[in-house]
């Protein structure tokens, strides 16, 4: 079985802060990580590989700037067999449509039975690229997957909804998008970290995949959506704040407020 895991290198948004003076994002010093949903998907792939390490091959694929190689090295150190970096200025500025077209083009260059993407990336939170890759490749998709059991020529997955789960059986090849809660990613092993730096990372630019896609659908020009503007979130007006009340007074103050607003 051949598994391709699509990962994204993202800034850790938990530590992203706004510059209070310029109201712009402070990117310096923000660590880059493998997107958590993707990392859980990679772990799921490696667990499948653990059941038959000789027969099952895990390839990680990412699209991004050259430094996204770090994310691939980390994936190799966790146990992935191969890594591919899709990088080209022609891919830059892409929205989810153009991104999914680019990645689908690269996937057409590969053999796969199962494609795994994270449900969503923490820097964009769109959850769109996975399903859109599946559509471009005409594959069945299951998103919000929180458990995977491999079968002979199918997988059985647990698909999360707000109020229920579906247990689904899907014939391979197919694409799933995984949730962080699916699996706790393993640590890199010392031996594998060493190996990871010896392994070769395949680097593909536009020339390597251009016969597999329509070039009109790439990058900023191929993106149907455009960011018109971005701005920091406006805070609301300052409310009342008390730091010197006894608990009795505090409780009384809260009740007054609820009465004032006709809540009680």
């Amino acid at each position: 079985m051949k598994i391709v895991v699509c990962i994204k290198q993202v800034p850790d948004t938990n530590v992203v802060r706004l510059d209070p003076v310029t109201n712009t994002l402070i990117r310096e010093g923000v660590p880059s990580i493998i997107n958590p949903d993707d990392k859980a998907g990679l772990e799921a792939a490696l667990q499948i590989k653990d059941t038959n390490p000789e027969e099952i091959e895990v390839t990680v694929l990412t699209m991004g700037p050259p430094q996204a190689e770090e994310a691939l090295r980390e994936a190799l150190a966790m146990g992935a067999d191969h890594a591919i970096l899709l990088t080209d200025r022609a891919f830059g500025g892409a929205d989810t449509w153009a991104t999914s077209n680019t990645i689908a083009g690269a996937l057409r260059n590969l053999n796969y039975d199962l494609i795994i993407t994270g449900r969503q990336a923490i820097d964009g939170d769109t959850a769109q690229v996975g399903p859109q890759i599946a559509e471009h490749l005409k594959l069945p998709q299951v998103s919000y997957v929180e458990n995977v059991e491999p079968g002979e020529d199918y997988i059985r997955v647990r698909r999360q909804f707000e109020d229920r789960y579906h247990i689904l059986k899907v014939q391979l090849p197919c694409l799933i998008t995984t949730l962080t809660e699916l699996s706790e990613p393993r640590y890199m092993s010392i031996g594998k970290i060493r190996d990871a730096y010896e392994k070769e990372i395949t680097i593909w630019g536009l020339a390597d995949i251009e016969d597999k896609l329509d070039k009109a659908n790439l990058g900023l020009k191929g993106s149907p959506t455009r960011v018109k503007k971005s701005f920091p979130k406006s805070g609301k007006g300052v409310g009342e704040k008390y730091d010197d009340l006894t608990s009795d007074e505090a409780a009384q103050k809260i009740i007054e407020k609820l009465k004032e607003k006709y809540i009680i």
């Binding site: 989810t96 449509w97 769109t126 769109q128 399903p131 559509e135």
Partner: peptide, 23 residues
């Protein structure tokens, strides 16, 4: 933007070839 809408809308947008803005 539910677990249904966020599965259906991107697949549709790709089939139609249009843009989609999430959440």
């Amino acid at each position: 933007a539910t677990s249904i809408g966020r599965d259906l809308a991107p697949r549709l947008a790709a089939r139609v070839h249009t843009g989609l803005t999430a959440d």
